[in-house]
Simulated scan of single mutants.
Amino acid sequence: MMQSEVLIYTTAWCPFCIRAKKLLEHKQIEYTEISLDADPSKRQEMMARSQRRTVPQIFIGDTHVGGCDDLFRLEMTQALDPLLSPAPTTHNKD
């Protein structure tokens, strides 16, 4: 089964970043991490995309999930898994 791309902006010292990554890892969800420690210029990119200054900022596909609390809220309401699974493509039959 395919998974929507997960992107997370983080810093090494942020406990919320660590917590969000642990949830993704526990669920065996692959993600791409953009460390603002390694590339501070990425903070401007993150802020432009999310309209927020704090980390983590999490994106699933084109959807801005928000931060750690938002990710856990999705998990608790069973809304995370459907967001991770892209909608199946339908083919028109003539």
Results as ranks from 00 to 15, higher is better:
A20D: 12
R49L: 15
C14F: 13
R53P: 04
D37C: 09
D81H: 08
P86F: 12
L24P: 08
L84I: 06
G61Q: 02
Y31Q: 03
I60A: 03
Q44V: 00
P86M: 07
S35M: 11
S41P: 01
H91V: 15
F16S: 12
V65I: 07
S50L: 08
C68I: 08
F72P: 09
I29R: 03
R49E: 15
I18H: 13
M1P: 05
L23C: 03
A87K: 14
P40H: 09
H91W: 07
P82H: 04
T32S: 08
M47Y: 06
Q51D: 15
I34D: 01
R52C: 09
L80R: 11
N92E: 13
I18W: 10
Q57A: 14
H91F: 14
Q57L: 08
L71R: 07
T90V: 13
R73Q: 10
T54A: 15
F72E: 06
Q3S: 03
Y9M: 01
A12D: 14
W13V: 12
Y31E: 04
T32F: 02
T63C: 01
D39L: 04
T90R: 04
E30A: 10
C14E: 09
D39I: 01
V6D: 01
M2W: 00
E5M: 02
M2S: 05
C14L: 13
E30S: 10
P82T: 04
V6R: 02
P56N: 14
T32I: 08
R49H: 13
E5T: 04
V65S: 06
K93C: 09
H64W: 00
A38S: 12
I58N: 06
V55K: 15
E45G: 03
M47V: 12
Q78F: 10
G67V: 06
Q78D: 14
L84M: 08
Y9R: 02
C68A: 07
D37L: 05
L71Y: 11
P56M: 12
L80W: 11
I60N: 01
Q51I: 04
T90D: 02
E5K: 05
A87F: 03
K22V: 06
Q51A: 14
R49M: 15
I60D: 03
P56E: 08
R19I: 07
E75F: 03
V6F: 02
T90K: 10
Q28D: 01
L83D: 09
I60L: 03
D81M: 07
Q78S: 12
D37S: 03
I34K: 15
Y9F: 14
F59T: 07
E30T: 07
F16H: 15
V55P: 11
K22N: 09
L23W: 09
V65F: 09
G67M: 07
R53A: 14
L36G: 09
T10E: 05
H91Y: 10
L7M: 09
L74Q: 04
D39F: 04
T32H: 07
I34S: 06
E5Y: 00
D62F: 03
R43C: 04
K93A: 11
C14R: 14
E30I: 01
K93Y: 13
D69S: 15
F72D: 05
C14A: 14
Q3G: 00
R43A: 15
K27W: 03
L7Y: 00
L74G: 05
E30M: 02
I29N: 02
D81G: 00
R49I: 11
C17M: 06
Y9G: 02
